[in-house]
Design a protein around this nucleic acid. Structure first.
Lengths: 179, 179
DNA sequence: CGGCGTTTTGAGAGAGCTCAACATCGGTGG
DNA sequence: CCACCGATGTTGAGCTCTCTCAAAACGCCG
């Protein structure tokens, strides 16, 4: 069911113009006018906001199949920057074409809303997980949410997901290994 | 623009059955079948998930105008509990009626998607803010995002929003007052 | 006046962060 | 084959900040 709906949205971009982004490339910047909607076909794009104190907030790590900056469809300009975290290929559709397609096709619109609803759900859960103060509790909550520890080599990604340093996660994992 | 769109969704619930919830009442529990969609007309309802280690994750503090558990529209059963944090009035619409209305009315569907997109954006930002380790940085990021410190008497709400203890926030505010 | 919730401040403990050193592993090139 | 390199994993030590528990000052309202 989920697969079918996600496919619906991807299909909307089938005839779209494609663009290759070398790693590190900036796709758009905060304040820029929104002209197109982008689908990540491969690679990873980060949506970033910078704070005055110099912190970098990575609002979204958009991977294959994700639509970039969903809210931009309903805003005249971007509220964050988009940078390719690794080489990526994006499909671009004029914003109005995207919106018209949503209006014209109820099934597509439903799929879009469903993916947005799930994204919201996931982001809310992540926010709560990160408000837990102990690494142990964060890991527990994350695992309970249906996530699984990946193979060695990708543990740092988990640390980033949990909002802790890799050392803290490594120590927690070592602690659990001992039991 | 935003007001108009939010009103569209509220209006969908105009003829809906209304339900008063005394504070503390449970509206639904995890795993229960989704039969209706709920709009919060007044009061506040918390969406809660419990972890095995006993932590309570408050996924959403839904206030006036919010649709409860948006993703439930696309799921057969709930993934969290809903409890009235204070006395609330909810409008309930059969799930299928809700979905059919979305499919039939493109403007409504657009408003729904827009509100979901904004919710996602907000939740992602909150998640990032909570991954900052110092209270000072969290407060800065929160203020920069367009939020303002409320009047005395509601500072604890801000502490909850930032995911820190009230004491930590009070101290940070005192620190800033001194400068 | 007497509660009750919020704000304020103190002191100590605990946990994560930071910096640092070192081990491991896979790939590259001599 | 082996040396080298970069990224990941591991562990130690000290610092800093938040959390926790406590106590007290306010402020509002019945």
């Amino acid at each position: 069911m989920i697969m079918i709906m996600q496919t619906l949205i991807s299909r909307l971009f089938d005839g779209a113009f494609r663009q290759s982004l070398p790693s590190g490339t900036t796709m758009f910047l905060t304040g820029a006018p929104v002209r197109e909607m982008f689908l990540v076909e491969s690679g990873e794009v980060h949506l970033i906001r910078h704070t005055a104190s110099g912190d970098r907030l990575i609002l979204h790590r958009a991977g294959r199949g994700a639509v970039l900056a969903e809210a931009s469809a309903y805003s005249p300009h971007y509220h964050c920057d988009a940078v390719a975290a690794e080489a990526a290929v994006l499909a671009a559709l004029p914003k109005q074409v995207f919106l018209d397609a949503m209006s014209a096709d109820a099934a597509l619109s439903t799929a879009w809303a469903a993916s947005l609803a799930r994204a919201t759900q996931g982001a809310r859960l992540r926010a709560e997980i990160r408000s837990l103060s102990r690494v142990s509790a964060r890991l527990d909550a994350w695992l309970e949410a249906g996530n699984a520890l990946p193979d060695k080599g990708r543990w740092q990604d988990v640390a980033a997901e949990l909002g802790v340093t890799r050392e803290a996660l490594y120590r927690e994992l070592a602690r659990r290994r001992r039991l």
